[in-house]
Amino acid sequence: MALVEIRNLTKIYHREAQEVLVFQDLDLDINEGEFLSLMGPSGSGKSSLLHLLAGLDRPTKGTVAVGGAQISAMSQRELSDWRASKVGFIFQFYNLLPVLTAAQNVELPLMLTPLSAKDRRDRARFALEVVGLGDRTDHFPRQLSGGQEQRVAIARAVVSDPALILADEPTGDLDAKSADEVLTLLQRLNSEMGKTIVMVTHDAHAAERAHAVMHLDKGVLTR
């Protein structure tokens, strides 16, 4: 069953007076529980597609539905609420808040829920345990290695138990060992917790860890 349904998706950016067509009439289904890698050259629109899936950007034309919800038709406020519970985003450069501890960073999406402070703390701690950082809850990002920071970011992405995880070059800033740990973790999230994952990557070895690899080039998506 498709968790993500993209139909006739067209995205055009306006740069000064120029129109830049990123892709046109794109169709894509991503099944529930799928781990999909998205590859392609720089500027091919991989990240743009990810942003559209996350509801961070709006299509010029066409529809994006996730879990039956037409996110391309949602208001800004509805999109914020939807993102808080339905999707987790992992960035290349982790993007943890340096002033918060690992646990506090993970707790951020839960602040938008009616959970009590204790429940939030417990869930954040559990998420950190899942990513193998149960002993680093009170560490600040500057006290963690790059691989550990990315694992905290993954914990932040899954803490609100979203069905869809979007990862934009999650290993792009990591050494081989840390990258391997992160990819293993993503595989576990997919296989053990049933998360649907879409991962943008330039790394063919990383892409191989997914169930399927798709290429986006000049607006055309191929398997």
């Binding site: 914020s80 609420d81 939807w82 985003f89 993007n95 999406p109 938008l112």
Partner: peptide
């Protein structure tokens, strides 16, 4: 700026 973008991406409203 980038932290605010991250907060928005995790669901913080404007």
């Amino acid at each position: 700026t980038r932290e605010m973008a991250v907060l928005k991406s995790v669901g913080f409203r404007d």
